[in-house]
Design a binder for these strands. Structure first.
Length: 422
RNA sequence: GGUGGGAUGGCAGAGCGGUCGAUUGCAUCGGACUUGAAAUCCGAAGGGGGUUCGCCUCCCUCCUGGGUUCGAAUCCCAGUCCCACCGCCA
């Protein structure tokens, strides 16, 4: 959420952000609502002050045995006025809140302007795309031939966009999760967390999925819960409505979860195999930091995610998302895109974002500094990494001419020493 | 699903119609003492809003929302959540 006071002082900056992010919001109207709200508050406050002093005076009169009937009647009427003003204010505030929740975060200054993926800025590349002396197959062909992936059975069981992993396929995914969590815990200093997959609507509002992305999430209507689209939701909300001590920061969490996405409106495109599915596992990194530390934290969190790809000897690139491609809640995002030679394209395996105080304000995550002042923390998160697309890159990159798969060295210990699949 | 108990400042925990925004303890911060620290002593300090150059003042806030009352942390109603026990169950 945008600080209402910032909005009041910098409406043009917010309007620009809305435009750059291709959102729609009526800033004028929000300002008018806010103005009216403050008028109502002032009116009610003045009457409440009078009621208080009058009530005390009445207490004095009665204690002295006097007749306070007239004053009591006056205060009663004051009470009616207050009730009316407060009711109007409450309705207005609810409306204002809804509007504020629909305002996107402002893109950071160093985020390029632009419409979509084509305008993203490539920051760096790591490694090189592997060259083949045979025609590389895609992961679906490889996986089905090896009997470790079954999409048809999943379609019968659950519908399109689901998959079965079998044997070494399932084992590989489990090993990768272990590998990644261990790396982040032992070498990057994260605390391992296992978090809920079902969350309340408020938690989704906290991280910014609601209200805008309601259609992209699965909802359990009967219990008013949402299936998380990412562990970001539950991990970040671990500290919702809490006041932390300065010494508690930074908080660095790593958690594995299943992620559930309806993928409404993304039918048809780039859906071969495991590229875009309704349910998948992901290892997620979340950090809560002091405001002044968030820019550096985004860099280090991104490096933490990159370390996974480097150890697995995969070719990837890092891009900075342009404003038009940036998520609703994010101020700045780096995408990690891994090379999938069978598909012949880069796949987004991680999105590392700095939300500044946008999520913290919505979720009520604050800290008390050494100066005793209370401020909102800054939140960040990034995939570290998403499993299906990581598996795609591994299978396609390390395939052999005979359709078997070499296991990268770093992963072998997690697979009981297995060197080859197939 | 059933029954009972509870929700108060960072935490613990009093208060149960009238200077209560709230006693107290722990934690925190400042000071004294000390070579330094601990201990001890003294002092400060909840959060939000409005207004203001800023402060003071002001308003709200004792789970949430209604109600009773001149006046509610305190009384009434509804809801939410938490805990315990029972039942069911991975």
């Amino acid at each position: 959420m945008i600080d209402p006071r910032f909005l009041r002082d910098n409406p043009e900056a917010v309007e620009r952000a809305v435009r750059l992010k291709r959102e729609s919001a009526d800033v004028e109207r929000i300002l008018a609502l806010d103005q009216r709200r403050r008028e109502l508050v002032a009116g009610a406050d003045e009457r409440k002050a009078r009621r208080k002093t009058e009530s005390r005076r009445i207490a004095g009169i009665r204690k002295a045995g006097g007749d306070a009937a007239e004053a009591m009647e006056a205060v009663r009427q004051l009470g009616e006025e207050i009730r009316r003003l407060d009711a109007e204010r409450a309705a207005l505030e609810a409306e204002l809140e809804q509007e504020l929740l629909r305002l996107p975060n402002l893109p950071a200054d160093d985020v390029p302007e632009g419409e979509g993926a084509a305008d993203n800025r490539e920051e760096r590349r790591h490694g090189e795309a592997r060259r083949f002396d045979f025609a590389p197959r895609n992961h679906q062909e490889l996986g089905e031939a090896l009997g470790i992936l079954d999409l048809k059975a999943a379609a019968r069981t659950s519908g399109s966009g689901f998959f079965f992993l079998l044997g070494a396929g399932a084992r590989l995914e489990r090993a990768l999760i272990d590998f990644m969590i261990d790396l982040h815990v032992r070498e990057h200093g994260y605390l391992e967390v296992q978090s809920p997959f079902l969350v309340r609507p408020d938690s989704c509002t906290g991280t910014g999925q609601l209200p805008k992305l309601a259609d992209d999430m699965y909802r359990i209507d009967r219990d008013d819960l949402y299936l998380i689209p990412t562990a970001e939701v539950s991990l970040t909300n671990l500290y919702r409505e809490r006041l932390l001590a300065a010494a508690d920061l930074p908080v660095k969490l790593v958690g594995q979860s299943h992620c559930f996405r309806r993928e409404a409106g993304s039918h048809g495109k780039e859906t071969t195999g495991l590229q875009r599915v309704h349910q998948f596992q992901k290892v997620e990194l979340v950090q809560l930091v002091r405001p002044e530390a968030s820019a550096a934290a985004l860099e280090s969190l991104t490096r933490d995610a990159e370390a996974v790809l480097q150890r697995l000897e995969l070719h990837y690139r890092v891009v900075t998302l342009c404003a038009g491609d940036l998520g609703f809640a994010s101020a700045k995002t780096y995408d990690l895109e891994v090379w999938a030679p069978g598909l012949g394209r880069y796949l987004e395996v991680s999105s590392c974002s700095n939300f500044l105080d946008f999520q913290a304000r919505r979720a009520g995550i604050r800290f008390r500094g050494e100066d005793r002042a209370v401020r909102f923390v800054h939140t960040l998160n990034g995939s570290g990494l998403a499993l299906p697309r990581l598996m795609i890159a591994l299978l396609e990159t390390f395939q052999c001419a005979d359709g078997t798969i070499d296991v990268p060295r770093a992963l072998r210990p997690c697979l009981g020493g297995m060197e080859r699949i197939g």
